[in-house]
Structures are given as structure tokens and as C-alpha cells.
Design a binder for these strands. Structure first.
Lengths: 350, 350
DNA sequence: CTGAAAGCGCTTACAG
DNA sequence: CTGAAAGCGCTTACAG
């Protein structure tokens, strides 16, 4: 590994002080054109670029952001990460990705905080700001330990979290819209004549699930539709969960005629289950996915789903963080109103 | 933002020198039990943790890795990232994620290197090592500019790249197996009686596609099956590509009876296309996916696919990088022999 | 416009 | 076992 040239070598070879080299690099102070040209030539020659560790130490900014998520395999999170990294890079920041593997189930079992070690890590790395998406923050019951850790983190550096607001914690909280989409989807299904609409997937004890569930119940009641608890089948957010959850609904004496799948994974799993019962979507059962992961237009059947504007959300979040770091006015609130994209899986009037 | 305590404060409050504090922290030199206890108490009290920028500067290691990929939305890459980040974290490294957005198409148009700016960035951040997966390295024709940039990068720090070996470039190259899987899949389809097997998806000019294509042709020839060029329909690696590519095969006067989809995205898109032609998988057309992204067991039809052990590959790559950084013996070569998981989509003997 | 010097927060020979 | 001092690679008042 070749030792790197430092500003000292550049200064020497240019016949100037390191201060001058630093100034031509940063442009923060005037340098005579001749000197500047000479220095730039040497910089070119050695392909010199300042050590950001040293720079960060003195400038008190690392030009690095932390992004903390529970899981990268879930398309929701990878979309978030993709958009955020791109925008960060454009703004000259790099992002340290932290995948905590937090799951509500394992937390319930072990009680171990998956996220705290990452909080400390980003602090130690002197990141300029942190984005947290999902994880413990999505729990209905947030532990004091988490709250304290988050408070500590956010007292040191700007952090924006995608999730429910926790009182007295100095973060920016950006929340996704969980309710309107459910209302839209249910009303649409009702307009098609469905009376028994199932709720499929999502984890109990998770705020997203619980708030959607409540909306589901309220909306059903408003529309005077069947609100039997047997129509609700929770589990988690992945393919097998969709399969298992849908299966329960199919085994009912009087099965649901329509299903609300919490996301595309759930929907795909549900389609598989429905198929295993020799039933089909949408002929026998109408299906709407409440969080679009894939281009539903290429699934079979083409999936009716709610576009919840994940990319727009991601863009807002990174802009917000950057504005906090740079002390500029925050970006406008994005329009996150969910958009129901009607395709085949929801079927026609029954 | 509260100013952070430094080692100086800790030293003062403990009544020792910073050297001593440093030594209790690192354990690299003996410290008397009494002093140690006192210092540790103060460290506890302030929750002190050393500034890694300063530490990195002096230790010449940042405990940070760079991971460079073209795209995080593709499940292949997100799986890679997930496994690598987890393993890195366990080894006390953090990873800077770099998403270059490289695509062969945009490169062909603009000729712009998407990756070089990231190479420089990780160098500036003083990462201890870099993993590169996909991107320019997957091109059949690698540009001199890329080769030079990669050489420069790899001359400075350890880098392992997942992709074809480039002569004279000081990287570790780990290559996926592209050929055996194709052979296995084709032989299986042939054993079922298929004579016209289509090749669907993959981008021309990409080494992965071209090498698979060649294997496809050779294997077909060996088995004395139809090698008409019309059975090959390339495009790219995403859902719409699978759809479009499959469509071409369906419009043939004498359509293929089986299709080899380059990955699950392609397979799902192909299923959609087949369905649009009022045909079904596997009754009318047998389908095998050559790179498993999802749990094919939950798709409809259940997808027969090749497990290419992406996670195993990822684990090997991070271990290899760590061994290079830490100067320890490299890990054993992993078994990447592809595994054909036979489910419904490949059908039965025709 | 330019340089000498101090300092960012740490670690590690060196001396005791 | 412990501390004073030098140094990692940079930037920025300060003085000229």
C-alpha cells in the first residue's frame, strides 16, 4: 500500500506553506493567481486530495451521515436507502449504513436493544447527522432504554426519524401516512360490493399495524360492513406471513370476499394461499396491496395497490436532515397522500 | 449540540495523564488496578468514547469499509449488502454504502464513469478496504479509465471485487459461477422433453449474460436441441425486461416450450407476458429462474429456480476483505455450486 | 497575498 | 506503572 502524499509534500514541492495549499484547495481566502496555478499543478500531479479524517477533526464535520434501518432486504427500506444515498452523495455526504436486524419478535424474546450499539457507533464515527427508519420506533410500547438512547443521540447530532413522534425527544419525526390509504382501499372495495373484507398481514404490537387496524375497523363500521374479528389475520411483513395470514381467512366458514394485504410481500403470499385453495384473484377474492413494493403491473394478477410515495418521503427526509445540519430552512412538507392504483387484482363489481 | 468530552477532560478528572486514559481504554499497556478503576469510573460517568476521527488519524485505520454497488433495489445487491454489513459490524467495522447507479445503457450513452467519484470518496474517507460488486466490472469491454481508477484504488487499500478478473489489477477478484447453473437448468428441461428452450432477459454486452449465453448455446448443441437465435431474447434484469423479452419469444411462429429466465424479476415478468397470451406456466410453457431472489415457494406458480448462494458468496467476500486488512490467512473457497430447486414452474415431462 | 504557529483529539515511543 | 512530548494531517486566526 503506497503511503499517501500529504499537504506537506504538496506545499514543499510548490514552494509555499501548507496554509497556502489549504487555501487554494478550499478557496476560503485569496491566493495570487500565479501561486494558485503552481500549487494546483502539483496537486494535479500527485492527484492529491485531503485526508478527510484530519479535515473532519479540525472542521468538526465528517461529511458522513448515518442511516439506521432494521433490514435491507425489505424493498421499502432498500428504496429509502437508495434515494437517500443518492441525494446525500449529490450533497457531498457519504452514508454509513447500519442494519440492526431489529424485529419485534426477537426484541420481545430477548429484550435486547439492537440499535443502541449502532447509535454509539455513529456517534464515535462523528457523523454529521442520522436518519433512523423503522425498528424499535415502530413498536407501540417504546422502552425507556430506547428513548434514552435516542435522546442521547439526538442531543449530540441532528437526527430525523421516520416513525411516530416520541414526546420530549429532540429529533425530527417524519411520519408516514397510515390511515388514509386504508380508508381509500376499503371504500373502493365496498363500492365494488364487498361486505366481508379481510385484513391480512402486519405484526401485532407494531404501531403501523395497529393504527391501520383501527382505521380498518372504524371504516368498516362507518360503512356498516362486517367487523368480525375473525376477518383480521396478522402475522408479519414477508412472503410466508402473507401466505399464512391469508390461509386463516380462507379457512373461515364464511371466507372473506376481499383482502387488504399490508404490502406486496403479503399480497404475493396471499395470492399463493388463495391459489392453493383453488380460488383465484380477483374472480373469487379481490385483493388490494396497501404498500407498493414492485411494479404491480407486471405481477399476475396485476396488483391493485396503494402508492405511498416512499421515494418522495425519502427525499424529504434527507433534505430535512441536510437542512438541520446546514442550518438552512427546512424543506416543504411533501404530499404523501396515498394513491390507489387500480389494476386487476381488485376485480370488478360483484 | 452538546460539545463532547475529550480524553483531556477524562484525564483531568481522573488525575492522570491522557496517556494513561488511552492505555486503560486500549489495554495495550499495563495500568495499576487502582488507577484503572478510577479512570474507568470517570469514563463511565461521562459515557466517554474516543473520537474515531482522531483515532483513525493516528492509528491509520478508520474501521470503516466501502461497499460499492450499482443499485440497491435489486435483491441480489441488497442481499449482498445485508450480509456484508452484518459481518462487518460484528468485526467492529462500519460500512459506507456507495450506490453508483451505473447501468450499461447509460454508460454506453454518456461514456461517463459513474464509479470513479466514489473510488476517490472512499479513498478520502480513509476506509480500510473496499468491496465492489457489479457495475462497470460486469461489462465485456472494460474501459482503460475504469481499469486505471481501479488500479489506483487497489494500490492504496485492499479491495475485493465480485466480478471478472482483470489482469494486472491488484485486487482480489471473486467470481460467481455463471455457467454450471445454466447447464443444470437446460439439462433438466431437456430431460423433461423440451426441445425449444428460450433464453430470456439479461443485458447484451454484460459478461454475465454473454457467458451464460455461450453456455446455453453449447449445452443446447451438445443435447442436439434447437439453437435458433430467435430463441434468445435479451433485455435487462428487471420486471419490465422479463415481460418484454418473454413477449418476443411468445410471438414466434413456433414459440419456445420452455424458458430460462435470468433471475426472478425476469421470471415474474415472463409469467405476466405468458399470461397475457392466455398461456400458462407450466402447462404451456416451462420456466426456470436462474437466480433466486425471492422464496419461490410463495410465488404463483411456485418457481423452479437456481439457488446461487448469494449469502454464502457475500460472507466469503467480507471475510476475504477482512483477512486482507488484518493480514490473516484468507478464508477457504466457498462452495458456490448452484442448486436447482425444483418446484412447479418447470412442470413435468411433456 | 502569505507564512509561522497553534490546535483538532488522540496514541505511543521514550524516559523515568 | 506513569507522564511529557511528539506527531497523525489538516485549517485558521494572527501578524506581516
Amino acid at each position: 500500500m503506497s503511503r499517501n502524499v500529504t499537504i506537506i509534500e504538496i506545499a514543499k514541492e510548490s514552494g509555499v506553506s501548507t496554509a497556502t495549499v489549504s487555501r487554494v484547495l478550499s478557496g476560503t481566502a485569496p491566493v495570487s493567481p500565479k501561486t494558485k496555478a503552481r500549487v494546483q499543478e502539483v496537486i494535479q500531479k500527485y492527484n492529491y486530495s485531503p485526508n478527510q479524517l484530519a479535515q473532519g477533526l479540525i472542521l468538526r464535520q465528517s461529511k458522513t451521515l448515518g442511516m439506521i434501518i432494521p433490514n435491507i432486504t425489505n424493498p421499502y427500506f432498500s428504496t429509502l436507502v437508495g434515494v437517500i444515498e443518492r441525494a446525500a452523495h449529490k450533497a457531498n455526504y457519504s452514508v454509513i449504513l447500519c442494519i440492526t436486524s431489529f424485529t419485534a419478535a426477537s426484541y420481545r424474546e430477548s429484550g435486547q436493544e439492537a440499535e443502541e450499539s449502532y447509535f454509539q457507533m455513529v456517534l464515535d464515527k462523528k457523523v454529521d447527522g442520522v436518519i433512523i427508519a423503522g425498528g424499535h420506533i415502530d413498536l407501540c410500547q417504546i422502552s425507556d432504554a430506547y428513548k434514552n438512547a435516542l435522546t442521547h443521540l439526538a442531543s449530540s447530532i441532528p437526527v430525523v426519524v421516520i416513525g411516530q413522534k416520541i414526546p420530549d425527544v429532540p429529533c425530527c419525526f417524519v411520519n408516514k401516512e397510515h390511515e388514509k390509504g386504508i380508508v381509500i382501499a376499503i371504500r373502493y372495495l365496498a363500492s365494488l360490493g364487498h361486505k366481508r373484507i379481510g385484513f391480512v398481514g402486519g405484526e401485532p404490537g407494531i404501531i403501523i399495524t395497529e393504527s391501520r387496524l383501527q382505521t380498518y375497523r372504524t371504516t368498516l363500521a362507518q360503512l356498516k360492513l362486517d367487523t368480525s374479528p375473525e376477518l383480521v389475520s396478522l402475522s408479519d411483513y414477508y412472503l410466508p406471513d402473507g401466505y399464512n395470514a391469508a390461509k386463516k381467512l380462507l379457512e373461515l366458514d364464511e371466507p372473506a370476499t376481499a383482502m387488504l394485504a399490508m404490502n406486496d410481500n403479503i399480497a404475493i403470499g396471499a395470492i399463493r394461499a388463495i391459489s392453493d385453495y383453488f380460488l383465484s384473484v380477483p374472480d373469487d377474492i379481490a385483493l388490494i396491496s396497501c404498500d407498493q413494493f414492485m411494479d404491480g403491473n407486471f405481477l399476475t394478477p396485476r396488483l391493485t395497490s396503494l402508492d405511498r410515495h416512499t421515494e418522495r418521503l425519502a427525499l424529504h427526509v434527507i433534505r430535512l436532515l441536510l437542512s438541520m445540519i446546514q442550518n438552512t430552512p427546512p424543506p416543504d412538507e411533501p404530499d404523501l397522500y396515498p394513491n390507489l392504483i387500480i389494476r386487476e387484482s381488485s376485480g370488478r363489481h360483484i
